[in-house]
Simulated assay, not measured.
Amino acid sequence: MPVHDEAAAKVRLDKWLWAARFYKTRSLATEAIDAGHVHLNGDRAKPARTVKAGDRLRVLTAHGEFDVVVAQLSDRRGPAEVARTLYDETPESEARRAQQSLDRALVPTFEHPLSKGRPTKKWRRQLHDFSRKQQG
Rank of each mutant, 00 (worst) to 15 (best):
M1W: 02
H4N: 13
A7I: 05
A9K: 15
A9E: 13
K10G: 14
V11G: 08
R12G: 09
L13N: 09
D14G: 03
R21G: 09
L28W: 00
A29M: 04
A29I: 05
T30W: 00
D34G: 11
G36R: 08
G36N: 09
H37P: 00
V38E: 03
N41G: 07
N41E: 05
R49F: 02
T50S: 12
T50M: 07
K52N: 08
V59Y: 04
L60T: 13
H63C: 11
H63L: 11
D67Q: 10
V68N: 04
V69S: 08
A71G: 01
Q72I: 01
S74M: 04
R77K: 14
E81A: 15
V82W: 04
A83S: 14
A83L: 08
R84I: 02
D88T: 12
P91C: 05
E92P: 00
S93F: 02
A95R: 12
A98I: 05
S101I: 11
S101H: 13
L102Q: 14
D103S: 12
D103G: 06
R104F: 03
V107D: 09
F110M: 03
H112T: 02
H112W: 06
P113A: 01
S115K: 02
G117P: 06
K121R: 14
Q126V: 09
L127K: 14
